[in-house]
Design a binder for these strands. Structure first.
Lengths: 184, 184
DNA sequence: ATGGCCATGTAAGATGTTACATGATTTA
DNA sequence: TAAATCATGTAACATCTTACATGGCCAT
């Protein structure tokens, strides 16, 4: 296996933390993530874990519930080593950069008539607000649970969302002269 | 053409704002972007513009410099319409969500020995600082140039980077007890 | 028992990446 | 004029997506 893709690395990392698990459980981990940038469909996950197994990065143990047979996967020593080099050896430019699909669209505002510009930005602002509420709730939950790392991850999402919401208000103020009511 | 991909939409948007331009110029737009999340290699761009042309979203005019012959592309009316529906009709969940490769790696810190954890986070902190400096400079330049939209886009990148740097300091403080010197 | 969700896949297809190739143009 | 870089591609390849297929399990 040449080089771990982003999805493969993430999957291997999840397996490392929550092993042993089935491909289906793995999919759920991606699905419930507050930031679902991967569809993590069956068509990607099942072949993926097979690739990982073929490369001996994970190991499968049979797992039967009633009539149905499945496989639970755990990370191997090789896999753990591979995961470490993947984390450390990635292209830092890619890791640091972050693709913001919203910003790309805002940069294209001139192709929209003004009414549609406002409408679009207003919609995005609302969605960001919703995301903010969800993320705050997530932070609160993680605070209860007590795992400092999990809390940090949620905090990261929260800080990002706050920054984006602040930014979209700048956009509204600059482009439309809209003044935003102060935060509660 | 079924549906514009993210790269296709971005390309079409650039063409709309800077037409007419050659595929090579288009590649450069992606390359000089402060956030290069696409390689925008020849192998992606040349077929891409051909797809756009086949779908009549752009139109090509010949363009000769000396011996060499090339094509410059401009957006069509159809293309403009298509671009608008692409902006407005995208999956809002995907547009709002943002994939943070750094956060994914930080979530995997437990698989690293403590020394490597510190080393990795320190490296990322440094890279973020560098990015911050570049982004600040970019904002200053855009401020000089006077285009409010371009300035906003740069501001967006700046706010994001500041948020991430702040976050990575939280990570250092929480995981390693490192106190960060106050910003200048 | 039947309709719906759980769980495991497979097939076809498009998109984007890396690596290669090639001639034109500029620069030392 | 030789070397570097500009500019335009092409080929092979891997990955991921969407859509489909299938059978077990569970609640009504």
């Amino acid at each position: 296996m040449r080089k771990l893709s982003e999805l493969e690395g993430a999957a291997l990392g999840i397996i490392a933390r929550a092993q042993p698990l089935t491909p289906y459980q793995l999919r759920k981990y991606f699905a419930i993530s507050p930031n679902p940038h991967w569809s993590a469909s069956a068509g990607s996950i099942y072949p993926l874990v097979e690739r990982l197994e073929a490369a001996r990065l994970v190991r499968a143990e049979e797992h039967a519930t009633g009539e149905r047979v499945g496989w639970k996967y755990s990370i191997t020593v090789t896999g753990r080593k591979r995961l470490r080099t993947w984390i450390l050896g990635g292209d830092t430019v890619k890791v640091i950069g972050l693709p913001d699909l919203l910003r790309v669209r805002v940069a294209m505002m001139p192709v929209l008539p003004p009414a549609e510009q406002r409408q679009f930005i207003a919609l995005m602002e609302q969605k960001l607000r919703e995301t903010l509420a969800i993320t705050r709730a997530d932070v609160a939950r993680k605070q209860q649970e007590g795992d400092p790392l999990n809390l940090l991850i949620s905090r990261g999402a929260l800080l990002q969302t706050e920054a984006r919401l602040h930014w979209i208000h700048e956009v509204q103020a600059t482009l439309f002269g809209v003044q935003v009511q102060p935060a509660p």
